[in-house]
Nucleic acid binder design. Sequence first.
DNA 1: ATACCTCTGTAACCAATGTTACTGCGAAGG
DNA 2: CCTTCGCAGTAACATTGGTTACAGAGGTAT
Lengths: 210, 210
Amino acid sequence: MIQDLKEEYGDIFEEELINEIVQVGTFKEVQEGYKFMEIGDYIRGMPLLISGVIKILREDEDGDELLLYYLEKGDTCSMTMACCMGDKKSEIRAIAETDAKLIMVPIQKMEEWTGKYKSWRNFVFNSYHVRLNELLSTLDNIAFQKMDERLIGYLKEKARVTKDNIIHSTHQDIAYDLHSSRVVISRLLKKLEEMGKIKLHRNYLEILDL
Amino acid sequence: MIQDLKEEYGDIFEEELINEIVQVGTFKEVQEGYKFMEIGDYIRGMPLLISGVIKILREDEDGDELLLYYLEKGDTCSMTMACCMGDKKSEIRAIAETDAKLIMVPIQKMEEWTGKYKSWRNFVFNSYHVRLNELLSTLDNIAFQKMDERLIGYLKEKARVTKDNIIHSTHQDIAYDLHSSRVVISRLLKKLEEMGKIKLHRNYLEILDL
DNA sequence: ATACCTCTGTAACCAATGTTACTGCGAAGG
DNA sequence: CCTTCGCAGTAACATTGGTTACAGAGGTAT
């Protein structure tokens, strides 16, 4: 755990802070599909992601889903922080997109450290900042793009975070993430295949040239 | 300026911080329609809003607009903070929705104060938190609601922040904010009028019972 | 092998939204 | 008073995306 932590966070946190994290944090290794957090859950801790990818989803009252963004190594969940501050329930769902390693830090330490360590303060501010921009760009996509463009963006982003040009998803999976319907996604994927941009298979698809 | 500041922020900032703000901040009084910030601008300072309403807009490459949310008294612009941190350009446009009073604080003070004053730190964190949730709810509206629901929400919110049941906007104005077209908005407004929820006039409309 | 189940392809249809075009109204200014 | 201009009403049409329904393909379990 210590070497993992140092490797990923050693450059930005001072020695002393690293030690504190090691003392109070708990190491966690989870598998793809693990649900970290459900909408309405109270938040127990703040995750520091060491490896893997976590996807953050929003859901409305009717159960309709929407992918917000991915967390990658070195990221933390600003939503979590936002919730901690107000001692509120989670507004989002977090699911491991790949196997992942992370350290959970008790939320009480958050405020203590923001006073004590400049590096921690910067880290937290920076996380907020990155997340805010991420949300903005998600908003842009939904507000200004049509489904075909959103689909292409989705495939690219998914390939990027998983470092894999094979997307292991069914059409239905994709439809959920984009808050669309299976038939629509099938239709658009077919067009992309006809254009030679992707190759479709059962349960997965290859990205050729997006 | 001092009494305005104390009135609005006296409860959350300690005396010493208030004094610092008075020393380095510049008081500003602007009229409805004043453009605080344009997309691509570098950010000079951080606004502390004392009275009035500022609307925050997003725009894409094609010039299509979208209202993100309103800032009210006691608010600050997290986007500004986010941009300062990275010394980046603004991602948004900010326009006075009503006449407004505010204090501009040089961005260099931001970091100094986050180390020095706990109240400032909490204020900044809280702003991020509020803005993050605001963005989330904007996202919800766009992703999960149809135009008629969004329109109703828009009218309600606008009436709330301006404390006025008369909405002084043309159909085109509304269409811009919702990123729709004038004809669509006219159509939907007409329906709302037929349902007895609003009363239409030239250049403004009355909210009867939304 | 057979039965079953999930995933994909496709067509036909519908609803919501956006677009174009034209009308008339009313305010403002010469 | 008359002209002009911006705003609102409305119809006709196009496009996008969502829905329903069904067929076939491929994998899995018995």
